[in-house]
Design a binder for these strands. Structure first.
Lengths: 191, 191
DNA sequence: ACCTGCATGTAATTAGTTACATGATTTT
DNA sequence: AAAATCATGTAACTAATTACATGCAGGT
């Protein structure tokens, strides 16, 4: 799904500035989508040019005016048309898991840190979902469904990591310097 | 993580052709990574030029020779160096979940199909993990960890979808034509 | 005084995806 | 006889990421 359609979707809930949208993406939708300023601003400008969005400009901080975008009827229609054509791809792109897959080649201490960091991210995303639920208690069924699914998935991941991390680390320690190509630090303290 | 590092990682397990690698990516690693021919072939060629990979060419089908790549010692070293610098980003990029989020604006029948399709994909990925486990029963701890985590996550997702799909569909049906901007087909049979 | 949050946008870089071109062997 | 699998590679296109440029208000 391109950033344009994403912006239409996000704005179909309520009006927002480009900045707001980015926060929403990284806070509320973070567990299944990510997008940055560099994609959002051009998308909003183009959608406004085409009449799918309208905005009210107020003097903002900095030299450029602050623009609050809202979706138009034309925009809502276009959004539905676009959504009809979207294929439901779902892909996970995880350097975290790739690193764990290669855990043999990493220092066990790093593996430990990696898991800690991931657990922190999961906690943040769970907190964001909790906050979102609290602030809009009667959300549309789709939104509630995705929130609940996200919460379940994040919980499961955290559980798994906490339950199995110890056995991973000890298996790694047991295998040190053993068969095939186990981890040997680049600075070579294996001797 | 760029395609080059990814190829080094995959080849650290066993030698393969570019074609093999693509299959491995879309079958074994599909639940957390994806990559196509257009990225793999140039990456392999560059890595071979730099001496991180070596290959044996045999006459293959088609005009170009078949090349079986294996990682060199230099390549293993480079891989570890690169892995040390990799940040453990983990992001889900899901048009599927975005579509469910917007379920209000979709025909309930489509939502149903969407869930069916996703369940099928999950089954395929679970089957791939099962197969991979069967073929290499004594895999390194990292590989087993990631396989188990993947299996757990996929199972949880499938469970959730099966358990909650009915209530989503009925909530959607109940809301038809009701408050705010619920789904109205583009061809407008709402009248 | 300095840092964080709010707020917008452009330009350059980087990387991924898709389409194209070729063709033998095996399965349906 | 057609389709799928095996197998490699290039070129064009599309899109995301990152860096840059600007600057006020409020908190520490």
């Amino acid at each position: 799904m391109d950033t344009e359609t994403l912006c239409l979707c996000a704005l179909s809930f309520e009006p927002a500035t480009g900045y707001d949208l980015k926060l929403r993406f990284e806070r509320v939708y973070a567990h299944f989508y990510a997008t940055g300023f560099g994609s959002i601003y051009p998308a909003l400008a183009k959608l406004a040019r085409e009449g799918l969005l309208e905005f009210t400009a107020t003097p903002g901080p900095g030299p450029k005016p602050r623009k609050r975008y809202s979706i138009t009827d034309k925009g809502r229609h276009a959004m539905r048309e676009r959504l009809e054509a979207v294929e439901p791809v779902h892909r996970v792109h995880s350097d975290f898991l790739m690193l764990l897959l290669m855990a043999d080649h990493l220092a066990p201490a790093r593996v430990d840190t990696l898991i800690d960091q991931r657990l922190e991210q999961i906690e943040e995303q769970l907190a964001a979902i909790g906050k979102a639920r609290a602030s809009s208690s009667d959300a549309p069924p789709g939104v509630e469904f995705v929130r609940d699914l996200g919460q379940t998935m994040l919980h499961t991941a955290a559980d798994f990591l906490q339950t199995h991390r110890a056995s991973l680390i000890s298996a790694l320690a047991a295998g040190e310097g053993a068969p095939s190509s186990r981890h040997e630090s680049i600075s070579g303290e294996t001797a």
